[in-house]
Design a protein around this nucleic acid. Structure first.
Lengths: 236, 236
DNA sequence: CGCAAACTTGATGTTGCTCAAGCTAGGTGG
DNA sequence: CCACCTAGCTTGAGCAACATCAAGTTTGCG
């Protein structure tokens, strides 16, 4: 969505300029960054890296969607984020990645190799600040998610999820849901069944429509936002 | 408690050298950073800043403990972290703070004023990288907490919390618990009653002792760690 | 057209929440 | 110095929300 907005504003933008890490940087800086980058593609379901793997660099999603997750020894899974175009991952170095990353759809991404990129952080003015802003944004998202996981009920969680997807896809009311229910469940701290039932309830309430199971229309955004923020969490 | 431990270990440490943001930086850089810093004190229960307030700078905890939290409109609260000496907060600028910060104990902290500090990020080599490392570390903690909130049961949550406190206090098996049960509950996504019951169960199991309600002894760290990581989550 | 994976729905079970008392410790005033 | 008072903690009983277990149903693909 990030990239999509950028490209409607400036239609014939070149790939490098579309890179989120380069946003706001000088052209000369951009080309130096591109010099340490390589393009990589993943098929749906493919793993980019696993928890504990050495960090080979920083990645930026160019197209498609991937998920980050952590596992407990007995297999319980918590998905910590869904990343779309323009989002950055792999910023947590030293001692390896602290989560696994896996493609949901076909994914194109750009890898900034560790060695060169680290040097550029010191050399390019503004790049470090840019990355700090990225990290701050992720932190903000993480805190919202903690509030959701710790204190919201099932309906509030699902409503929040739908609004997040809508936001990532450019604030449209037509949302594509590229991941299966099991991934949504592991993101929201629920079970597949509860997610499914909650979709059904929101549909019966007239807040959303479900043309197919991977496609949601938001029919009443105001009420959905009230649900998501807990204004009327228990009214099902 | 924390402060007490630190002061017994290194009684005459100088304040500047103790600053976490300066760790690993040249002396000259340290003094320039100190030039934009001011010391601030908070009484227990006092608010440092609230969600939405403009960010006046970056803070570092020198002594004491404070908590960060987010609220839902109906008053439900999620504590996103407890911060002890050496930890940094306020890195999320642009559009104000995304959480509130409140002192649990008496707190001494160091504020790095926004304007000057921002400039130093560009001017001092290594400072930006240092801050990125701080942000990465916070992100890691946030992801662990998401796993806890979304996928762990009450006993696993409480065990994880105790181990976190132990770690923050220098890996001793004697833990001080400076915050009331209600804060622990809001951190773990539980109620006061469940927290209390779980403490009692861990005590009956012989994993911990509770000389007073603010003081925990870890009696069997191995088993507590197994609990925390979900190896034997349901065995109560 | 048939198969498998994903989704939905229903019946039952469990965990942790709610509501309601006691209990305990620390602080205050007599 | 002691008795009281209050805030915080603990304990108990009943309940609600969500999980689990078990069928069906739909969908997309070969």
């Amino acid at each position: 969505m990030h990239a999509a907005i950028a490209s409607t504003i400036a239609p014939k933008i070149n790939v490098a300029a579309g890179m989120a890490v380069c946003k706001g940087l000088a052209r000369e800086a951009t080309s130096r960054i591109m010099a340490v980058s390589t393009v990589q593609k993943l098929a749906p379901g493919e793993t980019l890296f696993a928890e504990g793997d050495e960090a080979l660099g920083v990645y930026e999603v160019v197209a498609g969607m991937l998920q980050l997750y952590k596992l407990l020894p007995d297999g319980r899974r918590q998905i910590t984020g869904f990343l779309g175009a323009g989002q950055i991952l792999g910023l947590a170095p030293e001692g390896g990645h602290v989560y696994s990353a896996e493609a949901i759809t076909a994914v194109t991404l750009c890898r900034y190799k560790r060695a060169g990129f680290d040097r550029l952080i010191d050399e390019i003015p503004g790049l470090a600040r840019r990355l700090l802003a990225v990290a701050s944004h992720e932190l903000r998202a993480a805190q919202d998610q903690m509030l959701l996981l710790g204190r919201k009920g099932a309906a509030e969680k699902v409503a929040s999820f739908l609004l997040l997807m809508a936001e990532q896809q450019g604030h449209e009311d037509e949302i594509s849901v590229p991941m299966p229910r099991s991934d949504i469940a592991d993101y929201l701290g629920l079970t597949v069944e509860t997610v499914s039932r909650t979709f059904t309830k929101l549909k019966l309430q007239g807040l959303i429509a479900l043309p197919t199971s991977n496609h949601v229309q938001i029919l009443d955004r105001d009420q959905l936002e009230d649900f998501a923020s807990g204004q009327r969490g228990s009214e099902l």
